[in-house]
Design a protein around this nucleic acid. Structure first.
Lengths: 333, 333
DNA sequence: GCAATTTACTAAAACGATTTACCTTAGTAG
DNA sequence: CTACTAAGGTAAATCGTTTTAGTAAATTGC
């Protein structure tokens, strides 16, 4: 059961290990046609497969990158993961995906593990709870790209949505359709997770631009489990909202669940727009108007940024790359 | 930026590499309290992190397992992945997830890559297109567990649903509700992918047990893109079905999309049951009756089976472990 | 015809851990 | 006082590659 190594191949082919290694690395220049063929045959015959671990040790490069998502339950995360994997697959890299479950401790453990595993770089959806760790990686010049969320004053390349615009697109749409009492619901903003904060900022600014008074009663942020209670508060208001912007796909689910449970009609009782495209948007009743992130482009950009850091190609880009969302108007709002 | 190694720690602490290594492996017996403390401090001071790659090379064990899913677009796949990762995380293992996209070639490439990376074992949702490769792994006694699908005569530990029962539960429910013209729609069964075949088997057997004639017109299997056309054929029949069993979550989406598009009412124009639980089942209109797989239990079993192979604990279990689905009755059928 | 170059190859030193076999020194038994 | 043991280490081999520096033989230039 012993694994065959480069030494076995060398012995069988009556050639040195070095030459076999050259062959493996496709440096055929300095070896005769004959030996090349011979090595080729021997490898086939012995069913030899190089040990990547050994190679990685020597080359100090594993051709593997880590992806640490804050919360894998978001459709957005899984779409990004898929696109990143796709990109790196084509580059001959593998990815290790870790789910921090929104817990900074778990995030830390995963990042340390990935570094111990000598991954060549990491794409992180930062929880925001590990500033020191982020700084240390930055100091070590370890290749790293942030996705979806930005951390102040850290000078780390970041790919994210133009979140203010995302909210604006939704509010514009609501207002055009004549809605004035517009609420926004997002998951908790402790640790001021940037997309949520920015979406609320966009919501406020846009309403103001229309001269609509901002009601704090209409702005709800809470843990997932408490969203339902918050919605009850909304609908129990003297003047309940006639339109709701769901801050992400999970919140949208909660809103739809609530509407169903209390037999509220969309858009009659409340119009709905969700940020993040969802699989059922097109065949739900009514179809759901969503604000879609350009996930593939974002994933590709993040992957490119990471790869260029890994290859140390030129200056390190530490800017924030913003992508524009698009509104997909359907029937819910 | 040179990484610090065990040698640096040894030098700083004025101690040999061997002793530091003993420390890292928590074999404190043969070292004085003093040196233990000293090493501890030095490691903290230098911010030393062991290089797992080097360790893996020596130990011939990477504490990493691979998971190759046939198609990551299935909710089922992602749920299983999450549960597997959870299990292994607790065991100190990491997982590398690969998506074969239903292409045997891609599956092969991924499996070979995982083996080259020296993963300690692999859980595979087999495409069925790489018999020789499966056999080779089996022969090499490489730890491997199949998930979701079985391959004939291969004697590899397998975790899967009792698919016949899944179909039976759905048909029973339809019949109890008075439906008689029941169709089944699944994705393609070329390469006789076992769950699909078995679900059709269960569909047929159950109908027969009720003395209901099986109509081949009511059995539709096709690639995802052609599902819509197949549904048109169904509804254009002289006697269109009054109930449809969707073979998996992706098919269910297609069915719902179709019903919406042609303004067909559920369950009046056709009752619907889907195999696989979907996130919107509870708040869709109508709510969707589904047959749910016990994903967490299945994932745990697969992980356990793999781990025991990795640890070479006793006999290798090569049996097929079947899990019972449950019907979640809602309003669609 | 001889030096210089090119071709085709090799030996040996890394990479950073683990592990085995061995070595001191001090203490103890007889 | 000698012999043995135990405690507390260490040196060196090893894992399977890559890479550097070198070498012998063949070819070329003039």
């Amino acid at each position: 059961m012993k694994n065959i190594t480069i030494a076995d191949v060398a012995k069988h082919a009556n050639i040195s290990k070095s030459t076999v290694s050259q062959y493996l690395n496709k440096r055929y220049e300095y070896m005769s046609e004959k030996t090349r063929k011979k090595i080729e045959e021997t490898i086939k015959e012995l069913n030899y497969e190089p040990n990547i671990i050994a190679r990685s040790l020597k080359q100090k490069s594993t051709f593997t990158v880590g992806v640490v998502v804050a919360n894998i339950l978001h459709t957005f995360s899984t779409q990004i993961i898929r696109a990143i994997e796709n990109y790196f697959y084509q580059q001959g890299f593998h990815i290790i995906v870790c789910n921090a479950d929104d817990e900074p401790k778990k995030e830390k453990k995963y990042i340390e593990m990935l570094r111990a595993k000598q991954v060549d770089g990491i794409i992180i959806f930062p929880t925001g709870g590990n500033l020191d760790l982020y700084k240390r990686m930055k100091r070590d010049r370890f290749p790293i790209v942030f996705m979806d969320r930005t951390i102040k004053d850290l000078d780390i390349a970041t790919v994210m949505l133009d979140n203010q615009l995302a909210a604006q697109l939704a509010i514009d749409h609501f207002v055009e359709k004549g809605y004035k009492n517009i609420a926004i619901v997002t998951t908790s903003i402790i640790r001021s997770i940037s997309p949520r904060v920015e979406r609320i900022r966009g919501y406020k600014d846009t309403l103001e631009s229309y001269g609509i008074q901002i009601k704090t009663d209409y702005i709800k942020t809470a843990d997932l489990k408490k969203i339902s209670a918050e919605l009850s508060e909304l609908f129990d208001l003297k003047k309940p909202p006639d339109a709701i912007l769901a801050g992400n796909d999970i919140v949208l689910n909660e809103v739809l669940r609530y509407m169903k449970k209390y037999d509220l009609k969309i858009p009659e009782d409340a119009a709905i727009i969700g940020i993040d495209e969802v699989p059922f948007a097109n065949f739900y009743t009514p179809t759901i108007t969503t604000v879609k992130q350009p996930t593939i482009e974002m994933a590709n950009r993040a992957a490119e940024l990471l790869l260029s850091q890994i290859n140390k190609a030129g200056e390190i880009d530490t800017s924030v790359h913003r992508f524009k969302p698009t509104l997909l108007p359907r029937s819910s709002g």
